[in-house]
Nucleic acid binder design. Structure first.
Length: 886
DNA sequence: GAGCAGCCA
DNA sequence: CATTCTGGCTGCTCG
C-alpha cells in the first residue's frame, strides 16, 4: 500500500474556522476559536485518513511573485481582522509543539507550496490529500491527489472530496481547466480580474467548446454570446494575466524532507501546556500521560466479603463526608461506590461493591440508607438515584454534582464524572468509554465481557468525583449567583421529584386495554379502506411510501418539502383532505395509530406490579429549567382532541382518594408582564379574566365586548408568539396570513405594550454582550448561537434569548410551588400527595376528607410561590380520574 | 441512528 | 437574499 501525505492550507482552514465558530477567548483574552476549529478538523482528518506524513503550509506577510506581476493583487493576509490575526502565530506554535512540520516561503503563497509538495509527493508514489477551503486548489486534483474542502452547514461540518473525476463531475472541466475558468471569471477574493459579463455559466460553455483561453482567442469571432466576444476582444491581455496569477506554481524552490514530516506523537508535554493555556478542555483528554493524574486512593478496592463490607460500613458511618454512587441501569442495580477523604494520607479512598452472595441489593441499600442518615455530608452525581428512602434525609446535607453542573451549563446532553472532573477539578479521569468502550455497564458485567474491574473503576470514579467536586462546583455556583437557586430550589425539589416517582399514578389497566382494542378495530377498518382508495397495499406509517402514493401515483398537488422527499405532515395533508377522501382517512388513521402505539400500548407496558405507573422526572435535561418526564412521558398525555383526551379516564386515584388538579393561568404571559414592567399589560391582567380578548380589544382598538372570535384567536397567537421570540414569518405561518399582515399585528402589539419591545430587545443585547440570559431567580441559559455569523443560527439565538427568561422563570416558579405544596402537606400531616407536574400544572392524589385542605394549600402555595407585579392565578378542579379533574 | 411525525405546555 | 415561534419525548421506518 502506498504511503499517504496530508497537506493543509493553514490560513484557509484558520479562516474558515474563524468565521464558522462563535467567539471564544481564554482567560488572558486571547481569541482562540480559529485555532480550536483548525485542531478539530485536523484531528478528525488524521483519525479518518491515518496519513503517514503531515505538513501545514502558511502564507508569509510579504509580497509574492504575483504582486510583481500585478500590483493590485490581494494577498490572503490583507484585511484580516485583528481577532484572527493574533491567532496565527499561536497556531504555528501549537503545531510546532505537536511536532508538525510547517512550511512557508517568502515570495510564494501557501497554494504554491502545497502544489509543489502535492505533485512531488505524487511523483514519489504517494497518495496525497490537500485540505483547504479554497477551490483554486482543485487544479491540483488527479488520480492520487485528493482535494478536500470542508463545508459548514447548519453547524455540521461535512467535507467534499475531489479527485480528478469528481472535479469533472461537478464542473464539467478538467482540473487544469479550473485555471482557465478563473482566468475568465476572475476572483474577487484575491482581486484577480475576470472578463466583464462572463460568469461561471458562460466561461464553462466557452471552455467546453475551446478548451483553453488561448484556443478560444483563436476562435474569437465565433464566440457567443456577443458580450463574451467583445469582452475577449477588449480584455484578452487581462485574461492571460489572470491565468498566470491563478496558476499554482508546482515547482516552488523549497527544501523539504519527507522523513522529518512523518507523523509522530502529537500529544507532547509542550502541546499539553498550550492546550491548557488555550483552555481547550475537550482536547486535553487526548493526552494520556501529560494530564494530571486523579488524586485517587492508593488502591481502589473491590469488596466481596460480607464481614469486610460490614466492618467498612461501621467505619464509614463516622466519616464527616462521603461520596456515594449507586449505579443502576434500566432500573437494575449494578454496583455501589463509596469515596471518602483519608486525612492522614491526604488522599481519597474509594471502594466498589457489587451485589453478590450475602451482599444482596437490599442489604447494600440498607447500608447506604443508614450512611445517608448518619453521615454529615453526602455527595453524589445523582442523589435521586442514590437514596432510596429520601424523606428520612435532609436536603441540607446532600450535594448533587449533576444538578450543580447542569445549573452551570444546562446545554450539555449529560453530566458524566469525567467531564465534571475535567472541568471543575482539572483532572483527567478515564471515561466510561475509555474503560469499557461502547458497551453498557450491564453488558460489560456479563460473563462474556467480564469487565468487572473496569466497571468497578468507573463506579469508584463516580463516587470520587462527587466527593471531590463539591467545593469547586459550589464556588462556581456562588460566582454565578446561583447558590440560592441550587440550595433553595433544585436540591429540595430533587426530594419532591423522588417522592413523586415513588408514588406513581394509578392506572385502570383493563380500561386501558379496552381503549386499545376499540382503536384496533377502527384502525383495521380504516386500513382496508385506505388500501382500496389507493388501489394498492402499502405501509401507511412510512412517509416515504405514502408520499409516493399521494404525490406520484395520485398526482395530488403539494410537491416537495423535506430534505428526503415529500412532506406528509398533518398541516400539508389537511389542505388536501377536503377534496380527497383518502387523505382524510389517512389523517384519521394516523391519529388512531398514534393513540394506540404511544398511549394505549405504550402506557400499558409501564404499569407496575402495584398497578401504578412510575415515570422518571429528570431535572438536568432542559435548557430552560423545566423538568422532563420519561419512561413514560406523562407530560404529553393527549388533551386537545376528545378521542385522545379520553385516555385520561384511565388515570385514577387510589380508593378513598380523588384527584385535585391545579394549573397556572397563562403563567408565561404574566411573567412577561412582570419582567417587562409594561403598565398596560399589567393593568390588563388586573382587570380582565380573558387576557386574549383583552389583548385583542387593545391591539385592534375595539371595545372588549365587541371583540370577534377571529380577533381573539389572532391576539392569542400573537401572545404566544411574543413568548416564543416572535418573527413575522412564524406568526404568518401560524395564522395562515401574509408576512406583511403578521408584521402589522406585531407592530400593533408593540405599540399597545411599548415596554415589551424594549424588554425583548434588551434580552437580545444582554445575550450578545454576556453570552447568556437569566431568569428571575438567576437561572442561566447560555446563548452561544447569538454571535454566529450565520443568519439562521443567530436568529435562533435571538428567539432563545427572548424565550428562555420567560419560560425559565415560569419553571422556577412552579418548582418553588411544588416544594411549598409538599412541605405544607407534610406539615399538616396529610396523606394526600403530589404525583405529577406538567409544566404549569400540579396533580394531587388527595384523600377524600382532605380535599378542602389540599385545595387551600394549592391555592396559597401556588399563588404565593412568587411575588409578581400581576397576580398569579390558578384554575382548579377535582375528579375521580384525570379527565374529570382537568 | 437519523429523519419524520405527532403528542404536550 | 434568506429567515419557517420556545421547550420536551416516543414510535415508526429505513439505510
Amino acid at each position: 500500500m502506498s504511503e499517504k501525505i496530508l497537506l493543509i492550507d493553514g490560513h484557509s482552514i484558520l479562516n474558515r474556522a474563524f468565521y464558522g465558530l462563535p467567539e471564544l477567548t481564554n482567560a488572558e483574552g486571547l481569541h482562540t476559536n480559529a485555532i480550536y476549529g483548525f485542531l478539530n478538523i485536523l484531528f478528525r482528518i488524521v483519525e479518518e485518513e491515518k496519513p503517514d506524513y503531515l505538513t501545514v503550509a502558511f502564507d508569509l506577510h510579504a509580497p509574492t511573485f504575483r504582486h510583481k506581476m500585478y500590483a493590485d493583487y490581494k494577498g490572503t493576509r490583507k484585511g484580516m481582522p485583528q481577532e484572527l490575526r493574533e491567532q496565527v502565530p499561536v497556531m504555528k506554535d501549537v503545531l510546532m509543539a505537536m511536532g508538525i512540520t510547517i512550511v512557508a516561503k517568502e515570495g510564494y503563497e501557501a497554494d504554491d507550496l502545497l502544489g509543489t509538495l502535492a505533485k512531488k509527493s505524487e511523483a514519489r508514489g504517494m497518495d496525497v490529500t490537500v485540505l483547504s477551503g479554497d477551490r483554486d486548489l482543485l487544479q491540483l486534483a488527479s488520480k492520487h491527489i485528493c482535494i478536500r474542502i470542508p463545508k459548514t452547514r447548519f453547524g455540521k461540518t461535512t467535507i467534499e472530496d475531489y479527485f480528478e473525476e469528481n472535479v469533472k463531475e461537478k464542473y464539467q472541466l478538467t482540473p487544469a481547466q479550473i485555471i482557465e475558468l478563473k482566468a475568465l471569471m476572475g476572483d474577487s477574493s484575491d482581486n484577480i480580474p475576470g472578463l466583464p459579463g462572463v460568469g461561471e455559466k458562460t466561461a464553462t460553455k466557452i471552455l467546453l467548446e475551446y478548451g483553453t483561453v488561448e484556443n478560444a482567442w483563436k476562435h474569437v469571432e465565433e464566440l457567443k454570446p456577443n458580450k463574451a466576444k467583445n469582452a475577449f476582444l477588449e480584455h484578452y491581455d487581462m485574461a492571460i494575466l489572470s491565468k498566470k496569477l491563478a496558476t499554482i506554481n508546482i515547482d516552488s524552490p523549497i527544501e523539504y524532507d519527507w522523513e522529518s514530516a512523518r507523523i509522530g506523537e502529537f500529544y507532547t508535554k509542550e502541546a499539553y501546556e498550550y492546550f491548557k493555556e488555550l483552555e481547550f478542555k475537550n482536547f486535553l483528554s487526548r493526552f494520556e500521560e501529560g494530564a494530571e493524574p486523579a488524586k485517587i486512593a492508593v488502591s481502589f478496592q473491590n469488596v466481596t466479603d460480607f464481614t469486610e463490607a460490614d466492618a467498612l460500613f461501621e467505619k464509614l458511618v463516622k466519616e464527616p463526608e462521603l461520596g456515594i454512587e449507586v449505579l443502576r441501569e434500566a432500573h437494575q442495580f449494578l454496583g455501589l461506590g463509596l469515596a471518602w477523604n483519608n486525612k492522614e494520607k491526604e488522599e481519597v479512598e474509594t471502594v466498589c461493591i457489587f451485589p453478590q452472595g450475602f451482599l444482596t441489593e437490599s442489604y447494600l441499600m440498607d447500608q447506604v440508607q443508614k450512611l445517608c442518615e448518619k453521615v454529615e455530608r453526602i455527595d453524589a452525581l445523582d442523589v435521586k438515584e442514590t437514596i432510596s428512602e429520601i424523606s428520612k434525609v435532609s436536603h441540607k446535607k446532600v450535594f448533587d454534582a449533576g444538578i450543580a453542573a447542569y445549573l452551570l451549563n444546562p446545554l450539555k446532553s449529560s453530566y458524566t464524572y469525567d467531564d465534571i472532573a475535567k472541568e471543575y477539578l482539572g483532572e483527567m479521569l478515564p471515561a466510561k468509554e475509555d474503560l469499557i468502550g461502547k458497551l453498557s455497564y450491564t453488558k460489560a458485567m456479563s460473563e462474556k465481557e467480564a469487565k468487572e474491574k473496569e466497571v468497578a473503576k468507573s463506579i469508584c470514579y463516580m463516587a470520587y468525583t462527587a466527593l471531590r467536586s463539591r467545593k469547586a462546583l459550589m464556588e462556581a455556583l456562588e460566582n454565578n449567583n446561583m447558590k440560592a437557586l441550587f440550595e433553595d430550589v433544585e436540591l429540595p425539589l430533587l426530594f419532591t421529584l423522588s417522592n413523586m416517582e415513588k408514588e406513581g399514578i394509578r392506572v385502570n389497566a383493563e380500561a386501558l386495554k379496552e381503549y386499545g382494542s376499540q382503536l384496533e378495530v377502527k384502525i383495521k377498518a380504516l386500513e382496508s379502506q385506505i388500501y382500496e382508495e389507493a388501489g394498492e397495499e402499502f405501509n401507511i406509517n412510512s412517509p416515504k411510501q405514502l408520499g409516493v402514493i399521494l404525490f406520484e401515483k395520485l398526482q395530488l398537488p403539494g410537491g416537495k418539502k423535506t430534505k428526503t422527499g415529500y412532506s406528509t405532515a398533518a398541516d400539508v395533508l389537511e389542505k388536501l383532505a377536503p377534496e380527497h377522501k383518502l387523505v382524510a382517512d389517512i389523517l384519521e388513521y394516523r391519529q388512531l395509530a398514534k393513540l394506540k402505539s404511544t398511549y394505549a400500548d405504550g402506557l400499558a407496558g409501564f404499569i407496575g406490579e402495584d398497578g401504578r405507573i412510575h415515570s422518571t422526572f429528570n431535572q438536568t435535561i432542559t435548557a430552560t429549567g423545566r423538568i422532563s418526564s420519561t419512561e413514560p412521558n406523562l407530560q404529553n398525555i393527549p388533551i386537545r382532541m376528545e378521542l385522545g383526551r379520553l385516555i385520561r379516564k384511565v388515570f385514577i386515584p387510589e380508593d378513598g382518594f380523588v384527584f385535585v388538579d391545579a394549573d397556572y393561568s397563562q403563567i408565561e404571559l404574566r411573567v412577561l408582564a412582570h419582567l417587562s414592567g409594561d403598565e398596560n399589560l399589567i393593568e390588563a391582567y388586573k382587570e380582565a379574566q380573558d387576557i386574549h380578548r383583552m389583548t385583542a380589544s387593545q391591539v385592534f382598538h375595539v371595545p372588549f365586548e365587541e371583540v370577534t372570535d377571529l380577533q381573539r384567536r389572532n391576539a392569542k397567537a400573537v401572545n404566544f408568539g411574543i413568548v416564543y421570540g416572535i418573527s413575522s414569518f412564524g406568526l404568518s405561518q401560524d395564522l395562515s396570513i401574509t408576512r406583511k399582515e403578521a408584521a402589522e399585528y406585531i407592530e400593533n402589539y408593540f405599540a399597545t405594550y411599548p415596554k415589551i419591545k424594549g424588554f425583548l430587545d434588551g434580552l437580545v443585547t444582554e445575550a450578545k454582550e454576556q453570552g447568556y440570559v437569566e431568569t428571575m431567580f438567576q437561572r442561566r441559559r447560555p446563548v452561544p448561537e447569538i454571535r454566529s455569523g450565520n443568519f439562521m443560527q443567530r436568529s435562533f439565538g435571538e428567539r432563545v434569548a427572548m424565550n428562555s427568561p420567560i419560560q425559565g422563570t415560569a419553571a422556577d416558579i412552579i418548582k418553588i410551588a411544588m416544594i411549598r405544596v409538599e412541605q405544607a402537606l407534610k406539615e399538616q400531616n396529610l396523606e394526600s400527595r403530589l404525583i405529577l407536574q406538567v409544566h404549569d400544572e400540579l396533580l394531587i392524589e388527595a384523600k377524600e376528607d382532605e380535599v378542602e385542605a389540599v385545595k387551600a394549600i394549592l391555592e396559597r402555595e401556588m399563588k404565593g410561590a412568587a411575588n409578581l407585579a400581576v397576580p398569579l392565578e390558578i384554575d382548579m378542579h377535582t375528579g375521580t380520574n384525570w379527565y374529570e379533574a382537568k
